[in-house]
Design a protein around this nucleic acid. Structure first.
Lengths: 233, 233
DNA sequence: ATCATGGCGATTGCATACATTCAAAGCTGG
DNA sequence: CCAGCTTTGAATGTATGCAATCGCCATGAT
């Protein structure tokens, strides 16, 4: 078992990313310590870490507040992420795929293909698709062999509340389109079409970002109320 | 005055970036506390922060070690940075420059122009050029209005030892070329040539990365000795 | 009524004592 | 001499007490 500091950091990160705390919520050290049954020390370590990761904002002598993301921020993040995923695809196309990685991606695409035929659209299917999508992107990142790029993309994907939107995030049509994009990126990579690989991958991410921003704007209307409630509490 | 935690973090960050500790050096909490005349608490906070920033590596129950960068890592970082600076230039070209930012960049370019005529090549000139270069890039980043992009680029530029290489980093020819690149990026932006702006900016950064990697490889030979010494200490 | 001010409560910042863990030196038996 | 166990010490992990700071509210003067 890891140290309390690490485990508290993970728990807190998950909570923030999961949207348990509304943006702007102030995090009280003693409350958190009490809730997680540890002393303030590991809590402080966790808060410090999460602040450095960009999930919290720190103000000396004042404490930590959950960073609030506006629709404009999400757009900015997705512009960057789309560009980086494009770069990633380009790098992989340039240097070629190892047998291992090609096999992994092939498997993902096959499972995705099967998922298309699923008649009932349950939350479970949603989760499976999410997992497949993650595996596709993560395998590509790993195949790029660029650990710094990997870190940047990880940070660009760690946005609070995003996981909460998984329900009704996509319908059959968007899933089909997404799967098709994946196939084309893979095809471009295996045939060494670097420019195509980059364009398609970037556009693929950018499009999904646009969809998310739409949903975000809808939730954003209720945001002020949540922020106010947080301030009152 | 800020809290001890913050000030210690800044001091330590500067030390690591300045190359005061060789890559692989183990950072002892009590020694640091003694050296900086504070208790272990703010030291631990600083170490935690720097680890989250990617400058240190943390292993539970073992402590923090200064991250070691190989030439391959530097190359990976510069590939990402070149891409992001390209994105930055593209964004600015797309949305146009405000009068404020145009003025700032214009001033930087003028001062750079004057610097070309400096006959003696002292370290002071080196520092001035460094400052001008930073201002050019920072202004562009600010003009992009994308705070997430700004954060990513900041991280991509924070590499230990890089500042230490400032002596003999560039000669008159490379400075002239660099200045010319800046001018062309500016011209492309003001005339709305988005693709050119992106290409030139990316290539500009990539080239300077290549130059740095060359120098890095030369220093890398003495690296194993330094690492061994650190391990022994 | 508004603004300044001073104290009060709550929260964070820091130091230190103690617990825990890991690793390397030393010891014992073969 | 070596292998494996034991021990020991030095480092990190955690809890807690106290100090410092900030924001808020009440009080008073202009």
């Amino acid at each position: 078992m890891a140290t309390r500091g690490v485990s508290v950091t993970n728990k807190l990160r998950e909570a923030v990313l999961g949207g348990d705390y509304a943006g702007g919520t102030r995090l009280n050290e003693v409350d958190l310590a009490e809730a997680l049954a540890v002393s303030r020390t590991p809590i402080r370590a966790a808060l410090s870490t999460l602040a450095a990761e960009g999930l919290l904002e720190y103000r000396p002598n004042s404490g930590y507040v959950v960073k609030a993301f506006a629709a404009k921020d999400i757009e900015g993040i997705y512009v960057v992420r789309a560009d980086l995923e494009g770069l990633c695809a380009r790098l992989v196309a340039q240097q070629g795929l190892s047998d291992l990685h090609r096999g992994l991606i092939h498997k993902v695409l096959e499972e995705s293909e099967q998922l298309q035929n699923a008649e009932d659209w349950t939350d479970e299917v949603s989760d499976v698709w999410r997992d497949l999508n993650d595996r596709f992107h993560n395998t590509l990142i790993e195949a790029s062999g660029n650990s710094h790029l990997a870190m940047m993309l990880r940070k660009s994907r760690a946005i609070p509340l995003l996981n909460q939107l998984k329900f009704r995030w996509f319908d059959v049509a968007t899933l089909a389109r997404s799967h098709d994009d994946h196939c084309q990126v893979f095809a471009a990579i295996t045939s060494g079409q670097v420019v195509r690989a980059e364009s398609i991958a970037a556009e693929h991410v950018y499009r999904s970002g646009q969809r998310i921003i739409e949903h975000w704007r809808k939730m954003d209307t209720r945001k002020p109320a949540a922020a106010a409630k947080a301030r009152a509490a």
